[in-house]
Design a protein around this nucleic acid. Structure first.
Lengths: 121, 121
DNA sequence: TAGATGTGCAACCGATGGTTGCATAACTCG
DNA sequence: CGAGTTATGCAACCATCGGTTGCACATCTA
């Protein structure tokens, strides 16, 4: 196994999902199907304007899509994109998992070696 | 299932692991066993001081531990803590996975209903 | 002891998450 | 139709953070 891991994540996607407020927004949108900056702002501890900014970055990376309806602009999650992001997320987790397990194996081997040494005394 | 998901992540841990430079630092430390701000800085596209700051935040959340050795300060990964972080990371992914699948099921049910309607025509 | 090397601290910069304030577009109801 | 409400958009401003440069201090080493 190469030491260089396949962690080639779409960095914009990661950072989009990395923000806790944006995670909660995605959460709310998933639960409620759709929402506007105003409705989301009412359910979050930040202002409507902050939510609007977040929506624009989520829109830019494609995690969410807007559909104007009269004077309001309704957003809904693009589930395929989110699925991609989640997959990449868990791939990072898996990569580290692998590294940790490799380290663990090495550590065990060292410990075994030392035990053998001790038993030889 | 409650609509409120168990995403009660240690938010500091998430943000610590969220930064790409810090991820690479953890990576290097895992591969090399230990390292100082200087040695890590040499292998990264940022200055030693930037690395030092990152090391201090990683230290604060417990992902890394320092041991002074003469004039230098060697850091190593606290694997147990990192394992915890990775677990929480993947739990977030799993939670979203679950939500997405729930949505997908609902979508399929709706589509089936509509197909039935169409067949009734 | 003098010079080289590792660390720490402070000031500064740009991006970003957040705020307030205001202007404008679109509904709603006399 | 017209007045008031409601949703959005835009701009200025602030704090935090990742990053930098510069300098002082501690510690090795020749």
């Amino acid at each position: 196994m190469s030491t260089e891991m396949a962690e080639r994540i779409d960095d914009d996607l990661w950072s989009a999902v990395g923000d806790p407020t944006r995670r909660r927004m995605l959460d709310l949108l998933l639960m409620q199907g759709e929402g506007t900056a105003t409705t989301l702002g009412q359910q979050l501890p930040v202002t409507r304007q902050a939510v609007a900014k977040h929506l624009s970055v989520l829109d830019r990376v494609g995690l969410v899509r807007a559909s104007p309806a009269g004077r309001e602009k309704r957003y809904r999650v693009d589930e395929a994109q989110l699925a991609r992001a989640v997959a990449q997320l868990s791939s990072v987790g898996a990569a580290w998992d692998a590294r940790l397990q490799r380290i663990k194996r090495i550590a065990e081997r060292i410990q075994n070696t030392q035990q053998e040494k001790r038993q030889e005394d």
